[in-house]
Design a binder for these strands. Structure first.
Lengths: 190, 190
DNA sequence: AGCTTATCAAGACACTGTGTCTCTATCAAT
DNA sequence: ATTGATAGAGACACAGTGTCTTGATAAGCT
């Protein structure tokens, strides 16, 4: 039973918390979402099971923490892509392509909502992503690169779901085609 | 605790099996997917828990049976829509609209894959749907209504995922717009 | 009909995972 | 250095699972 103490308590708690989330990430990657248990997480993190309950009230909380870390990293990456110079249309396409690449081969990534009873956090993450895209879409609509007969929010929902197909795409070329098709849906009809 | 419900055994087994699936449907609708247990199903179906194990080896099996019934009904409905007279493009759009209407307000509907470890059956259902759409798309591509620079299978995956956004659409009008946008992505670029 | 066999329903048991309680060991502040 | 706070982990009660066994009932055979 390792105690893994650092010098200060606050730092220690942060370290243990992170170790638990790391362990969760490993277990999810290896055995899938549904089969992860508190017992496994505690064992994998090298702490007692009861101790884990001092950090998280239940598995949902651990999974939410893991998901939040995953999502915020992705959102940061996307925000960085969106901040690159270029026309609104170019930046939008770059963002969509980046998102598709994140999704590829990760069929579980977004389906946590099915496991979590109260999916507040998942919904919030979804909203942040949607807002980011909606902002880009609104800009692109103003510059004429994107249709304006549908609200940016609805277009963003369309984009996120359409690019979810990236999970099934087996090649980089297929992924490109998916982004192309998705972007075609965004263009103004004439 | 009824012992035998009908006169013949074969009929009885079918009746019990159906009652179990019905009970599962009620429980899923009321409490969500993740919290359904064998105990609840048995109680709701009016049989002993151990008896339920004579019909299904575990919860996955029950959920798969429920899902299969759900999906086959939807597929029949879509096949019927696809068989209506009209141009390939019209039939395709009618099908997409029908699918979107099925998805609407059913966020759990397709997310079972996250719960099932070995999602063979779910994948198979997904494949059947994809094949149905791919057939329509191939026809529409031949008649020029749909782009031919992307394979029908990839376009079908795009459609299914894009229309998954229907779960978040709050009005019939929004749903129509979603179908319109999705169809716009399918059209040949010129 | 009467007997035998197959099999259905359900009670009982062992096992796993959960969430809480409690006790000991260690840190932090006075 | 003493005292208070808190982390860690063992222990307990509970819920759900999957299997085994026992008694009851339908189906098949003579």
């Amino acid at each position: 039973m390792p105690k893994l103490w650092t010098d200060t308590v606050g730092e220690h708690r942060r370290a243990v918390r992170e170790a638990a989330v790391d362990a969760t990430a490993r277990l999810v990657a290896e055995h899938g979402l549904a089969s992860v248990t508190m017992s496994q997480i505690a064992a994998e993190a090298g702490i007692g099971r009861a101790t884990l309950y001092k950090y998280f009230p239940d598995i949902e909380a651990v999974l939410i923490a893991w998901h939040e870390r995953q999502v915020s990293a992705h959102l940061d990456q996307l925000a960085h892509i969106a901040d690159q110079p270029g026309s609104p249309g170019q930046r939008l396409e770059a963002c969509l392509h980046g998102y598709a690449r994140m999704i590829r081969g990760r069929p579980h990534g977004a389906d946590i909502s099915a496991l979590l009873h109260r999916g507040e956090h998942v919904e919030q993450a979804h909203e942040l992503l949607t807002e980011l895209l909606a902002g880009l879409l609104a800009q692109a609509a103003r510059s004429g690169d994107v249709r304006d007969d549908v609200t940016p929010a609805e277009l963003a929902a369309y984009c996120v779901h359409a690019l979810g197909a990236a999970a099934e795409m087996h090649s980089e070329a297929a992924l490109r085609r998916l982004v192309t098709v998705t972007c075609a849906g965004l263009r103004s009809p004439r």
